[in-house]
Design a binder for these strands. Structure first.
Ligand SMILES: NC(=O)c1ccc[n+]([C@@H]2O[C@H](COP(=O)([O-])OP(=O)(O)OC[C@H]3O[C@@H](n4cnc5c(N)ncnc54)[C@H](O)[C@@H]3O)[C@@H](O)[C@H]2O)c1
Ligand SMILES: NC(=O)c1ccc[n+]([C@@H]2O[C@H](COP(=O)([O-])OP(=O)(O)OC[C@H]3O[C@@H](n4cnc5c(N)ncnc54)[C@H](O)[C@@H]3O)[C@@H](O)[C@H]2O)c1
Lengths: 214, 214
DNA sequence: TGAGATTTGTGAACTTCGTCACAGCAATGC
DNA sequence: GCATTGCTGTGACGAAGTTCACAAATCTCA
């Protein structure tokens, strides 16, 4: 591992959450927070919070807790790149546009700066604040902007071929919303977010819980 | 547990995936499939497939594999309710509408049949094939249609209060897209799908992978 | 200054999830 | 009919993730 330290993917996700909570939900002026306060906000156990924070090098003091500013800085030192980290979106359909509108101007350090589509109605324009390029420019744009992360929102039938192109163009992380498992080579981090799987899982357990209550 | 058998939530998700793959990607006419074929499509190991299939009661035969039809039926018997299972969507904004358009007419057995919003511009109309009700009708509609599952896509600041209302109205499963951890009572199944967490996680590991390759 | 109340940091236990590996068996070939 | 092949079903193992539990540290207040 690059930094000497290995850090679990679940932990990275929660660190991102803790930072957001610290920035938005800690009563202003509060200089310190306890692990149990963050835990309550994040809906996890205090032990989980402390364990996660270990990987940032931050340390708190008993009886006083963690300095809010130290935590935000410590987490940012782990999660953020010194420069802005750029992200590409491929597939500017209904979901893609919702994602663009959601992320626009959110974290200054992590920005969707390029989008791609095959539809000539969409390419060449700026959509929800983000320029939409034709697929033919993908490799060049990713290279020029040093983009290593992509969000995939193309139709299922096009997902694998698009992935192959992304990987060949130097992408190292993909967040996939197409409902197809993607095949990626070693060294490419993949997060699958199949909404159908999620919904069927929730429906299954909802039914079960409802029946149990009878 | 209701049915005598406990079944892991990850397994439920994969069963949903296997069924979709069986219905769509198995060359027509193929009467049997091997665990390694399904594994390839689902990007998991053959052992994982066999282990998951154990919980459906289906069994295959060595040298021949599993009967495709048996699997689809077996999985459906686990996942599907005898009657149509209805789902509600709360928050018909950019994301909500994308979800509606995606799920409309997908699985006949699992349908989003009602949506809810506070915006009077949206309520009272049919949006993407789904009627949008005002929040005041929520409890009544959920009761009338026996809806136990909800998708939440309201602004973060409204997510917890909306959840409380859903739970009070008899919801037992929530798929949450608002970027806030929700507090639900025991007996309500919750799936958090925070896109910011996902994206930051992918960006983190993408960066790491890209640096390692140097 | 010292007793008491809290909270941190973390080894160890535990839980959950996935993989290995192999016994047992259906199909096939001889 | 018997040997061979190759897949299934599953106990045992291993890895990842979470919680427990407690010693050490700091704060509060008399
Ligand atoms: N809309 C949702 O809420 C939702 C939910 C779950 C999953 N998904 C999945 O997300 C993906 C996108 O969904 P959507 O609703 O936005 O669909 P959509 O049809 O609205 O958008 C797809 C977009 O991808 C573009 N496209 C098609 N082929 C392409 C290619 N080869 N390269 C680049 N772009 C290409 C199309 O021009 C279109 O703009 C689909 O795989 C869908 O299954 C969407
Ligand atoms: N758009 C995305 O891709 C995206 C991505 C990640 C997360 N999210 C989250 O999903 C949620 C919705 O996002 P969006 O982009 O659709 O936002 P949006 O503003 O477009 O839509 C929100 C909708 O919720 C309705 N609403 C507001 N208060 C409500 C209440 N109390 N009860 C019911 N409905 C209410 C609004 O009228 C609006 O229609 C937000 O929490 C957002 O953070 C969205």
């Amino acid at each position: 591992m690059m930094n000497g330290v290995t850090i679990a993917s679940k932990t990275v996700g929660r660190l991102s959450l803790y930072r957001r909570l610290l920035e938005s939900s800690i009563p202003c002026g509060r200089e310190h927070v306890f692990s149990h306060e963050l835990a309550l906000l994040a809906c996890v156990t205090p032990a989980q919070v402390r364990r996660d924070l270990m990987s940032t090098g931050c340390s708190g003091s008993p009886g006083k807790g963690y300095r809010t500013k130290d935590l935000i800085d410590g987490i940012s030192k782990v999660l953020d790149y010194p420069e802005v980290q750029r992200v590409a979106l491929v597939g500017v359909g209904n979901l893609g546009r919702a994602i663009l509108s959601y992320f626009s101007g959110r974290r200054p350090n992590l920005r969707i700066t390029a989008s791609f589509d095959t539809d000539p109605q969409k390419t060449g324009r700026v959509i929800n604040g983000c320029r939409c390029h034709p697929m033919s420019e993908l490799t060049a744009v990713l290279g020029r902007e040093s983009i290593a992360t992509a969000i995939l929102a193309v139709p299922a039938a096009r997902a694998q071929e698009t992935t192959d192109l992304l990987v060949a163009s130097g992408i190292h992380g993909i967040l996939n919303y197409a409902p197809v498992p993607l095949r990626v080579p070693e060294g490419v981090f993949l997060e699958e977010r199949d909404m159908t799987m999620s919904l069927e899982t929730v429906a299954f357990f909802a039914r079960r819980a409802a029946l149990e209550r009878k």
